[in-house]
Amino acid sequence: MKGSIFLELLEMAEETFGEEVVDRILDTTDLESGGAYTSVGTYSCGELVTLVSAFSDHSGIDGEELQRLFGHWMMTFFTKRYGSFFEGKTSAFDILEAIEDEIHVEVRKLYPDAELPTFATDRFSVKELDMVYTSPRPLAPFCRGLIEACLNLFNQKATIEMSALADAMQSTKFRISLVDQS
């Protein structure tokens, strides 16, 4: 997992719980990297899961909820750092559909060995989009957070149904149905 994810998680934690708390958790948690992350490095995904659960223990906020909040944080980060991806996009669906064919293509140019999840989309009606997230990492709530933040970007409201796929253990399906705003 790319270092920038870790840096952003720590940034969010420092913002929320303060540097001292973050320092203490990093010092007391058993991490392979020793908690020293750089954005150009690659680290084990297990460290992310460990850190999320440590922050959960500290704050009493549910781990999945923390992942979802982190999804919101990351969307903001993406808009600041990679604004060009968002140019010419007029809706959340446009962004979600572009992850696989535009964003991941760019990511691979910088990090040819990046292990990326897949996001298969199917806009089966004007207001409904199925997105199937497939990854060996248990980060479905993080994805949900990203989807929500993406809808917020365009001031769109929608219901998001998450369901596991019976025949694909590593996949999660998100059915996103836009809600009329009048």
Binding site: E14, G18, E19, E20, V21, D23, L26, A36, G41
Partner: peptide
């Protein structure tokens, strides 16, 4: 965010940044 940032950083934080 309610956390205030301290004026100084700890040795451990410094070491971590250097390692990184």
């Amino acid at each position: 965010s309610n956390a205030e940032k301290p004026a100084t950083v700890s040795r451990s934080r410094y070491e971590r940044e250097r390692t990184a």
